[in-house]
Design a protein around this nucleic acid. Structure first.
Length: 435
RNA sequence: GGGGGCGUAGCUCAGCAGGUUAGAGCGCUGCCCUGUCACGGCAGAGGUCGCGGGUUCGAGUCCCGUCGCUCCCGCCA
């Protein structure tokens, strides 16, 4: 017998069906037994009149516990009394696939850390499932757009012999007789693809950062979305791509899940208008000062409170949730970011802020070998271990640039969540290696 | 790495300025209930108050240490 999903019951009134799922609730009364079954498509009420004395099926229902996995055979009937869609299933057969222990270790309002201990139970809740439905839709929309623009998908190695210079700390792993590192970023390899003539590339894959960061937006392993585009004129081309691509992704998510997201997470998905507001870092600091926000310290960057404040100002002045901040000084950017020809202390780089958090870092890359060498020396980067990378630029490299971001940060903002752990299937942090 | 907060029943929490047998709601167990739908009613079980030490006649409560969790900063995406 084939399985019927609960969402399909409406079209099966009068038919005998098999539904398979979890015991969501059990109301075992004197004359009637009510069972609410949940599967990935919804909830359904199952009923069984209780005989006196109870028959074998009555007894079987009585022994059920919440969250047990069961297979139900019964006839679908329409009944206006039923609040759950005006439908119910008259129970005819019950198979207990797996009886759950009676006391569950977590409740919907349990602390996040405890819910992660029991993530498989936590994820049974429909609103948690929605997170991953949205992730799937978003990723699909990204690929849809990339393919329309002739991008090639990469799968770069995660074992590396040296750092890919992103400032983040590396995980060391034993590698036969030597030592390897887990990739912090596919940065060098996506640039290699450009040097290889692929034109435009993307990768969605894991990256590893050995930062002991205890915040709501960091983890030690996360899914990075990376893009690199060849034959550009400046970082402006990269930003122009990113904003159009993101607008497409958000439009797709809104049309597919907009109502569910609003109902479940009380967050509206806003499809952004183009172009996104742009401001230089210097301009951003002026805006912050004018708004009375304490000017960021001597560092050549924005701290998280300043990023939040800047987003709020842009939202108020332009009605826009996104903001590109451009032209970061060389002091806070890696050696491979291209510098402005007329202002060599500034890079052709950008961050993309969304609702107060840093979503993306991007830049035009330096593709001229001698210039790249000079910048590495200027930043005191030991080029010995990365000669293979520098070689990409010795035999004809196109001007190019790109960006990368953490998938869960996108999802977190999209769903109005306050922690990446909520939207990560299985979180990995400094003290979290299980489950 | 720096700073703040928290750790009491399976879960979420309350325990005021230290004072006999540590509480609530939910969950769990049992009984009752002609259709419930967050069902309802009655009864019951369940806690070495994270751990170690100290102060005190007396510590869940105060002090020190330690472990764990959490948030912010640093770092980043």
């Amino acid at each position: 017998m084939t399985r019927t999903l609960i969402a399909e019951l409406r079209g099966k009134v009068g038919e005998r069906v098999t539904i398979r799922g979890w015991v969501h609730a059990l109301r075992d009364q004197k004359r009637m037994q009510f069972l609410v079954i949940r599967d990935e498509s919804g909830l359904a009420q199952v009923i069984l009149p209780k005989e006196d004395p109870p028959n074998e099926l009555n007894e079987a229902v009585s022994t059920l516990t919440a969250e047990s996995a069961v297979t139900i055979v019964g006839t679908v009937v329409a009944d206006e009394r039923v609040k759950l869609g005006g439908l119910e299933v008259r129970l005819e057969e019950l198979h207990v696939d797996s009886l759950a222990d009676p006391e569950l270790p977590i409740a919907p309002d349990s602390a996040l850390d405890k819910r992660i201990d029991w993530r498989f139970l936590d994820l049974r809740r429909p609103d948690r499932r929605l997170i991953f439905e949205v992730q799937t839709t978003a990723e699909h929309a990204m690929r849809e757009y990339w393919r329309g623009e002739k991008f090639i998908e990469l799968h770069t190695p995660k074992f590396m012999g040296s750092a890919s210079e992103s400032g983040a700390e590396l995980f060391k792993v034993e590698y036969f007789e030597t030592q390897a590192y887990l990739a912090q970023s596919p940065q060098f390899y996506k640039q290699m693809a450009i040097a290889a003539g692929f034109g435009r590339v993307f990768e969605v894959g894991p990256v590893f950062r050995a930062n002991p960061s205890f915040t709501s937006r960091h983890d030690t392993e996360f899914t990075s979305v990376d893009v690199e585009i060849g034959w550009i004129d400046s970082h402006e081309d990269v930003m122009a791509f990113e904003e159009a691509w993101l607008a497409h992704v958000l439009a797709r998510v809104k049309e597919t899940h907009g109502e569910a997201i609003e109902a479940t997470f009380d967050t509206e998905v806003v499809v952004p208008s183009l172009p996104f507001p742009r401001v230089t870092l210097e301009g951003a600091k002026d805006m912050l000062r004018e708004a009375g926000h304490a000017a960021p310290g001597p560092e050549d960057d924005l701290d998280p409170p300043s990023e939040r404040a800047l987003s709020a100002i842009v939202k108020q002045e332009h009605g826009h949730e996104f903001a590109f901040v451009t032209d970061y000084p060389t002091t806070v950017r890696p050696f491979y970011h291209m510098r402005h020809p007329d202002r060599p202390n500034l890079t052709r780089s950008f961050d993309l802020l969304w609702k107060g958090i840093e979503l993306t870092t991007g830049a035009q890359r330096e593709h001229r070998y001698q210039q790249l060498l000079a910048q590495a020396e200027d930043k005191r980067v030991d080029v010995g271990p990365i000669q293979y990378y520098l070689n990409f630029f010795r035999f004809g490299a196109p001007p190019h640039g790109g960006f990368g971001f953490g998938l869960t940060r996108l999802l977190m903002q999209l769903l109005g969540q306050d922690n990446v752990r909520e939207v990560t299937f299985l979180y990995r942090g400094p003290h979290r290696l299980e489950p």
